[in-house]
Design a protein around this nucleic acid. Sequence first.
DNA 1: CACGCTTTGGTACTTAAGTATGAGTGGGTT
DNA 2: AACCCACTCATACTTAAGTACCAAAGCGTG
Lengths: 142, 142
Amino acid sequence: MLKTVLRFGLIALALLILFQLSNVSLVIPSIPADTVIGITAVILVALGIYLGGNIKKEKVVKVEVAAPVEIDQERIQNLGISQRELEVLNLISTGLSNQEIGEKLFVSESTIKTHVSNLFVKLDVKRRTQAVTRAKEWRIIV
Amino acid sequence: MLKTVLRFGLIALALLILFQLSNVSLVIPSIPADTVIGITAVILVALGIYLGGNIKKEKVVKVEVAAPVEIDQERIQNLGISQRELEVLNLISTGLSNQEIGEKLFVSESTIKTHVSNLFVKLDVKRRTQAVTRAKEWRIIV
DNA sequence: CACGCTTTGGTACTTAAGTATGAGTGGGTT
DNA sequence: AACCCACTCATACTTAAGTACCAAAGCGTG
């Protein structure tokens, strides 16, 4: 909104300058009217490109901001998913087995199975592949 | 390249029109010089915005083309992954069980198991969760 | 037509995954 | 201190996943 006002202000300013310049050739006859008009034309086109560029830039920013996937911390809280469970969930999504996850976290496979089972209840799923899909849907993992 | 030439051509054309219009007020005195200059200024700014827009549009396209994940058909070919196997792979990634995939494709679970086993060899993995990760890495699935 | 490849299906087996249940420890709260 | 919760681990079990091997129908190519 403010930017739009600014742009119209710039255009108005440019027009004012144009009108002023149109009198230069009358005041200073040594400068030909054609030269003044040419320079003004170039300035106006440049102004247009600048304004157009800014308008398009905003659209680019919108695309880039929408792209990154942010983790929904609030949903994690609401589902009651603990830090350890989240860790396990992330490792599941990388394709590790329960045993491998256990080795990576220095706990037994038994413990991982418990975490996984609890996760399934919280995510309302029956399989680990489904858990990964659901977790990505709900922006719990990337 | 060609577009750049076109743009400069348009600018040159615009300048020509400007110079022509500057004579209109001399030819037809009923139209004030200020009006002609004003209209020309607006046209030039519009031209600038149009040109600037086109220049920026190219940049937008580059961003948008880079973002979507394209399927690497060549890699699928090289790995010798068949159409049916690809179907199964996609259903695995949605979290379905072998039995569910069989029902969805109207074939037995046995058949799905065969496809899955063959897929694992081609993807060089040992588990279905790993297969999904690998397949996404290699842009075989979305 | 023979060959290769895809798709289908089966049996039999091993292994991983998932369920159910119980239980111990330590941190933090009331 | 009593309590809750997260984390840990174990046993015993069921089910799904995965492996190995074989087999047959169909389809296009050389």
